[in-house]
Design a protein around this nucleic acid. Structure first.
Lengths: 131, 131
DNA sequence: CCATTGTTGCAAATAATTCTCAACTGCATT
DNA sequence: AATGCAGTTGAGAATTATTTGCAACAATGG
């Protein structure tokens, strides 16, 4: 991942290397604060401002994704996994990932009809188990 | 709409009546600040805090919908209109409504395949004008 | 018309994120 | 290995969106 950054012309600093590592090790979807806490454990000198700045840089470079769930703080994950959307089970809160080529295509068509190119999208299905 | 509120046990105050009116007249998707500005024009005494409080009350009563688009402040619209999804212009922040029967159908199919019935969903396209 | 209870305005509090600026550090070059 | 400089950092102040505490006020039932 570090190489990908270097190639994108991003200067590799101690704190950036640390954050990349923390993100790579995360199997959840931490927010900026959680990342700061984790990085801080390894290097108490890393500041929250730098976490925010670095997250923007990494997002810009395309190595992480930023997810904005309702009102809540933004959460991040490495973008090495394939794109997917989410179905949320309203009773259990479980999150099921899915992907539909057809929907992706339709979205692009709709945007094109309106004169737009999609940069990214958000699709969440809130559902209940069939009776 | 006022009756719907009364039925929901919501006390009708001068400022609530005004905000309901402003919302009913809005054909865009204003945020709390914009609503405050518009209400303020009619009654300079209405405060921003009350706008926020009233919006929560109206949402609770089910007469308006709150949309939390990425990072940006929440935006509102009356919920008396037929269902639609949103395309957000990343440059101007403009919100364009659209509806696709095909996507609706596909969503239902996907949910069904996973053993679910959709209760509601959220689809947002973040896009940029075609060059 | 009065009492009760909910509502408002104001200002201060919170929460998430960005910015300012002086000190510091990658890294290309010598 | 030393040097220059543009990019980066830390600390805290600033900003933006929203919520809250509290005393004054007003809507509805009786």
């Amino acid at each position: 991942m570090e190489n990908a950054l270097r190639d994108a012309g991003v200067r590799i600093t101690r704190q950036r290397r640390l954050l990349v590592q923390v993100l790579a090790e995360a199997d959840d979807h931490p927010d900026a604060n959680a990342l700061h806490r984790r990085a801080h454990a390894n290097d108490p000198k890393v500041s929250l401002a730098t976490v925010y700045r670095t997250l923007s840089v990494l997002e810009e470079a395309g190595v992480i994704d930023r997810h904005a769930f309702e009102g809540k703080p933004a959460r991040f994950e490495t973008s090495d996994r394939p794109h997917h959307d989410h179905l949320i089970d309203l009773e259990t809160g479980a999150v099921i990932e899915f992907r539909s080529e057809k929907i992706e295509r339709l979205q692009a068509e709709i945007a094109a009809e309106l004169g737009y190119d999609i940069v990214h999208h958000r699709l969440e299905l809130y559902a209940r188990k069939q009776g």
